[in-house]
């Protein structure tokens, strides 16, 4: 990847006016799809993504079922209108890969052994893409899974870090992803303090890598607070503490 223009100005502001430690604005709405068992809509900067969870339900075809645990299926898909030039709706190589890494990043959080011979289907549909859609997809899918009432050890949170103008920045957007020199999406379980996804596109020195990972995890923790708040808002309204009964 070669960098062609300045992505961080003299005041330390990025192309969209953020500092290097700022996240984009995140808004999560839980339970947007009535037909699904759990669902969430996320606006992660200019990303707009819907996640829907179905299950645990019967496996079809039956021979795919596992006797000791549940099968998790993930489908990441970008709508034809999600990008500026039309995207072919057929699953591309990239989408198949993201579906796989998304499944692997959610799996450690789920207690799949609780639902033997069943399946959980996760659908992530990108309505508008703006860089970092796999992270935003994981965030939405994780909230949708919690909304579906599936047993989970923790909620998976995700955020990317990257290298832009030789500086490590949090949450790279589309321009920084394309023009910058490195992009590192990280999914993380905040309570268990475990990383479930770590990809890196670009070249980083050892120090840069460490800084990047720390920054991404810090971002994940911020995202987690938003996820938790969204779930609380749906189920308990504005109450955060349970009033003790008399």
């Amino acid at each position: 990847m070669t960098q062609t223009k300045n992505l961080i100005d003299e005041e330390g502001k990025r192309t969209d006016g953020r500092t290097i430690d700022d996240l984009r604005e995140i808004k999560i709405t839980v339970g947007v799809i009535r037909n699904a068992d759990g669902s969430a809509f996320i606006e992660f900067g200019r990303n707009k993504i819907i996640a829907a969870v179905y299950g645990p339900r019967e496996v079809h075809p039956k021979h795919m079922a596992l006797p000791d645990r549940c099968v998790l299926k993930c489908r990441y898909h970008m709508s034809p209108f999600s990008t500026d030039t039309r995207k072919n709706p057929a699953p591309s190589r990239r989408e198949v890969e993201i579906s796989k890494v998304m499944r692997e990043s959610l799996e450690p959080a789920l207690i799949l052994e609780d639902y033997p011979r069943a399946t959980i289907d996760v659908f992530v549909e990108v309505l508008q893409a703006d860089g970092g859609s796999r992270c935003a997809g994981i965030v939405a899918a994780s909230v949708a899974l919690a909304d579906a009432g599936i047993n989970m050890r923790d909620i998976v949170s995700a955020c990317a870090a990257g290298k832009v103008d030789d500086r490590i920045v949090l949450d790279v957007n589309d321009t920084e992803d394309k023009e910058g020199s490195a992009d590192m999406p990280v999914a993380y379980m905040p309570h268990l303090d475990q990383v479930t996804l770590l990809q890196l596109d670009g070249i980083l020195t050892r120090d840069q890598f460490n800084e990047s990972l720390d920054k991404a995890i810090m971002g994940c923790k911020k995202v987690y607070e938003i996820q938790k708040q969204a779930l609380m808002q749906k189920y308990f309204g504005n109450e955060t503490e349970l009033k003790e009964e008399q």
Partner: peptide, 10 residues
């Protein structure tokens, strides 16, 4: 003791 929880909460 009762409280509201989401997955992962202690």
């Amino acid at each position: 003791k009762r409280k509201y929880v989401v997955p992962g909460d202690v």
